[in-house]
Design a protein around this nucleic acid. Sequence first.
DNA 1: GTCAATCTTTATGTATACAAGGATAGCCAT
DNA 2: ATGGCTATCCTTGTATACATAAAGATTGAC
Lengths: 235, 235
Amino acid sequence: MHIMAINGDEMAENTFHKLRDEIENGIVTGEFEPGERLDEVQLATRFGVSRTPIREALLQLAAIGLVETRPRRGAVVVDPAPQRIYEMFEVMAEMEGMAGALAARRHTDDDRLALVSAHEKCEAAAASQDTDRYYYDNEVFHCAIYAASHSRFLEEQCTALHKRLRPYRRLQLRVRNRMKVSLKEHGEIVAAILAGDADEARSLLRSHVAVQGDRFGDLVANLGSRPSGKLPLVK
Amino acid sequence: MHIMAINGDEMAENTFHKLRDEIENGIVTGEFEPGERLDEVQLATRFGVSRTPIREALLQLAAIGLVETRPRRGAVVVDPAPQRIYEMFEVMAEMEGMAGALAARRHTDDDRLALVSAHEKCEAAAASQDTDRYYYDNEVFHCAIYAASHSRFLEEQCTALHKRLRPYRRLQLRVRNRMKVSLKEHGEIVAAILAGDADEARSLLRSHVAVQGDRFGDLVANLGSRPSGKLPLVK
DNA sequence: GTCAATCTTTATGTATACAAGGATAGCCAT
DNA sequence: ATGGCTATCCTTGTATACATAAAGATTGAC
């Protein structure tokens, strides 16, 4: 009798799975900068494995859209233009709005608890001016909404996009007072969802996530201060 | 026959690229049935290559969500439950609605031409009762809307989801009169977009794509009769 | 001194080899 | 005969080897 510690989701991962998560994490964390070349042998030696699982990880990341591969030229971390980042937020806003609308209609008691709990944690983080903690709790909050939509597929799509936008979301928090404003919007969103007001939840979430008006300018401005943009070496 | 505009970027693909497209095509075509196991050596011998590029192709397809890989157990074609298919259409409806809304606001003269032209081709196909042709022209029509949204990212997302839903969309066309109804809706959608009525375009596209009410029942019913007919796909 | 062509080098892409974990079938016990 | 255990085989997962194209360096010409 083995004790199967595997709970629904399987923890049994292969090497390339772990590598994929590791590299993916490195990308959204910023350890691997946008535009940076991801050398296979370099990564292989760094992680103490052969090139094979590295390649497999990189190809999966390429399929997701986190890296780009040019034939015979290897993989580089994607470096989306501001326009594209804007488009991504635009789509994200729509999907979150959808999730909120569905959540307003379909949420269960458990969802209510999770949502309120996540919101309270955000409040605590904001009260203690802990940006990092707010950054994390904010993610939990949004994921709670995805879950409450009771659409597994939508939840997956939202989570994936959310992950890709992680670096830029973080930049946004650096804008003055953004945390306070964000928290206030969270409160209204929770109220709308709990009240079952789908339309209100949708529009609130849409504008909460969208990067419009000044916020787009703020984002672009912060992009510049990013250590990225490896300038092509002038010979 | 698409006219794949080669825009500066080279089409120079590697073996695993071609294999990926080949297998992906086989999946959406129905050659590889849902739930079918994809044996690596079998595919390797079939395509006359080694296991390496096959694995790379399968892993990319796994990242996209067209196949599932269980550790040490190989890859199988995903076989989504009706509930999940419904969810996918639900999300697709929202995204198409968004594309339509953006298209209504942002479309250029070229977009108008492409849209009207695609619509007319659909009319011709419907008039000649050519289901296969309608199926293809319908895709072109929807892609024209994505393009008119002038959001490259949204366009990509829509195209990807559209591709994944291909098999089920085809099933829907088998429902009596669906082609006629679909065409009528297209006409209204075109009118709304050309008129610049974003809200109308959104709601029309939403209900055009969504699988609600009877249509969900029709879909599920047709799912059962699937394995019999390998879907001939107009390429 | 600059530019270009060719050679060298280095990294990618594919094939093959090796290791290890399931699956299956056969055998033993109840 | 049936249930469980074990041994074998087969497939996946990873490492290594080899081929080839692209980037860089070196040398020669103008």
